[in-house]
Simulated assay, not measured.
Amino acid sequence: MKAPNKKRKNRYFHYQKEILNTISEPASFINRNYRYVFVNSAFNTFYNKETSEIIGKTGADIFGKDDFESKIKPQLNNCLAGEPVFMQYEGELPGGEFKILKLNFYPHLKSTGKIDGIISTSTDITEQKRAENALRENEARLKELNATKDKLFSIIGHDLKGPLNNILGFSELIEEGYDKHSPEDIRHYNKLIYRLSLTVSDLLENLLTWSRAQRQKISVTPQNIALSYIIAKCFSVLEQNAIKKQIRLKNSVHPETIIFADEEMITTVIRNLISNAIKFTNRGGTITISTKNENGRVLIEISDTGIGISKEQLSHLFEPDENHTNLGTEGEKGTGLGLIICKDFIEKNDGKLSVSSKPGQGSVFTVSLPAEKHETHKVQ
C-alpha cells in the first residue's frame, strides 16, 4: 500500500511543479529547513541561477547571508507557523543589480493538514517604486512651487505695493504743500522716501534674482574665489546702511581663505545675510564675519549683536509658505525672501546654511561651502 501512496504524492508534487512553471513570476517551493526543493523557469531567469545551483540551498544564496537571517528567515518562520506573509525586500540580487521585490510566502499543507513547506512567489516592483518616489518628489516640488507663487503674489501685492504707496504719498505731500512745509518737514519726508526706496530696490533685486533661479535661468559656475574680496565688496555696498545705524562691520576673514563656488551667487548670499544683520542689530552694534576650516570645507560665520530670533521663528525661517518676518530695529521691513534665496543658492553650490540664535543675544548664520579645489596635472 505504501508504494501507491508514494506514487500518488510524487504525481501530486509533479502537478504542483507544472502549475508553478506556468506562472510568469519567479516561484519556488521551500521546505521546513528553508531549503529550495523546486524553482520554476521564471525563477532561473530572474535570479540568474540554474536549478542545479539553487536546489538544496537557502535564500542566503539569493539575498545574502545577513539579509536572509535578519529579513527573510523571520518571515519564513511566521509562514511555517501558518500565516501567509507579504513583505517588501530591497537589496542586491546575485547579479549585483539593486531591486525592490514584493515577496509572498504561503504555507503549504499536506493532506494531513500539517505544514511541510512554503510556496514563494516574487514580483519585481523596482520601477513601480521609483515611479512612486518620483511622483512624491514631483508633488513636493509642485507644492513648493505653489508656495513660491503664493509668496511672490503676497510680496508683490503687499510688501511692494505698500512702500510704493507710501513713497507716492510723501512725494505728494511735498509737491502739493512745498511752500507750507518747513525745511525740517521736507527733510523728514525725503528721509522716509529714501528709506522706502531702498526697501523697494532691495526687494525688486531679490524678486528678480529669485525669479531667474526658479526658471532655471541662473547657471552655477563654481570657481576658486577669495572670500575676503567678496565680503569687502558686500561691505562697500552696505556701508552707508551700517553707518546710519552706527553699526561696525568687521571682516575677520584671512585674505588667503579660498572657497569653491559661483561668485555671483555667493555674493548675493553674503550681501543678503549682512543686510539682514544690519536690519536686526541695534545702534552701536557689531557684525562680524569669520571663518573656520573643517574637513575640506570653509564655514563662514556671519554673527551680529542684534535682537536675536525666537525658537518658533527659527523653525519657519526658510519656508516660503510662511510669513514670520519682523520689522527691523528701526522699522526696516523684510519679507523673508532673501533668506530663501540664500538657502537655494547655497545648496546649488554644494553647501549648507544653518542658524543659531536666542532673543536678545544676537544671531549666527553659518554657511558651509567647499574649500579651494586644486587642479590635478597628469604626469607625462
Rank of each mutant, 00 (worst) to 15 (best):
T148V: 04
T123R: 11
K73A: 05
K292A: 14
T268S: 14
I55M: 06
S201H: 10
I55S: 03
L196N: 08
L101W: 02
K114M: 09
H324W: 10
I115V: 15
K292S: 12
L369R: 03
E372L: 15
L273A: 05
A277L: 00
R215Y: 09
I119M: 01
V220G: 11
V269P: 00
H324I: 09
L203C: 04
P359L: 09
C234Q: 12
E301A: 12
T221C: 10
L227P: 01
S197V: 01
P4D: 13
T45P: 04
G169D: 10
S310T: 15
E264M: 07
K49P: 03
V37H: 03
H316E: 06
P74C: 08
Q313H: 14
K110W: 07
E137F: 01
G157A: 11
E239W: 04
E18R: 07
N44G: 06
T221V: 14
G162N: 15
K245Q: 10
T286A: 02
F46A: 00
E92R: 14
I193F: 08
I259P: 00
T257G: 08
T126K: 02
L317D: 03
S70L: 11
L369W: 02
D344M: 06
S275E: 09
K358V: 08
S171Q: 13
A140Q: 04
D262T: 03
S122N: 03
K373S: 10
E25Y: 13
G285F: 02
G56R: 11
L80S: 03
I54H: 05
K71E: 10
K250E: 14
R32M: 06
P320Y: 00
D262C: 14
N166C: 02
T199E: 11
K73Q: 12
T305W: 01
P320W: 01
T366I: 14
L160I: 07
E347C: 04
Q223T: 12
R11D: 13
T199I: 09
R283Q: 14
E132G: 08
L353I: 05
N276P: 03
V253N: 04
H254E: 13
Q246S: 15
A140F: 00
F13I: 15
N133Y: 03
E330Q: 15
N21M: 05
L20M: 14
H14G: 13
H108K: 10
H374W: 13
S363T: 14
K378L: 15
